[in-house]
């Protein structure tokens, strides 16, 4: 399984990748997770990779071989399309964060991103994860909402394992908010795919 998480630095891609990695490890898979630290964390595009299977060599998902992209922001989702294989899945947060070339008026923010992505034969699960996070009680748990949505697309892993892992890795103070956020994402995708 090849998962790519794309986000704007500071959105919490690391937490989502660590939960995915821990779940896969618990299921007995070989796992590699590639993270981003340093300069791009300051509001730049960030990409983390999660790979699991019987034996994993490269820690990086090769373009064209991705099973799933979790996009925490629309434009970053658009940028990440080449990672996906034909028929891959994208969890797409509808949140828009303008990058500097858009803020300064040099470029336009592309329109109808979800449509453009879907036109490539990609299964798109789009959601307003920011609103769902706020409903769960904290605007910062956008990452957990999307993680829940991704989990609903992954076969062979019981819901309880996801919940337990979120419980283990989420900060104690924000445990309930994270569990609720996870449930919102999970339920939304399960509802879509029934």
């Amino acid at each position: 399984m090849n998962i790519v998480i794309v986000a704007v630095g500071g959105q919490g891609a690391l937490f989502a990748s660590r939960v995915l990695g821990a779940v896969a490890l618990g299921k007995g898979f070989d796992v590699k997770v590639s993270e981003v630290h340093g300069m791009s964390q300051r509001g730049g595009s960030v990409i983390t990779h999660v790979r699991y299977g019987s034996a994993i060599a490269s820690p990086i998902v090769e373009e064209g071989y991705g099973d799933m992209v979790i996009a925490m922001e629309m434009l970053e989702g658009l940028r990440a399309v080449p990672f996906l294989k034909k028929g891959g899945t994208m969890i797409l947060n509808e949140q828009v964060i303008h990058p500097m070339p858009v803020i300064t008026g040099k470029m336009a923010y592309p329109d109808d991103i979800a449509g453009k992505v879907a036109a490539q034969g990609i299964t798109v699960h789009r959601m307003d994860a920011l609103k769902m996070a706020c409903d769960a009680g904290n605007s910062k748990v956008v990452n957990t909402v999307l993680l829940g949505a991704a989990a609903a697309c992954v076969s062979g892993i019981d819901r309880a394992i996801w919940d337990d892992t979120v419980k283990t890795l989420a900060p104690r103070k924000y445990l309930d908010v994270n569990l609720q956020a996870f449930d919102k994402g999970y339920t939304m995708v399960k509802g879509n795919t029934k």
Partner: peptide, 12 residues
């Protein structure tokens, strides 16, 4: 796959 040519996607 490419949903939009790379040079049209604003960098971040």
């Amino acid at each position: 796959l490419q949903a939009m040519s790379e040079n049209q996607i604003p960098v971040r």
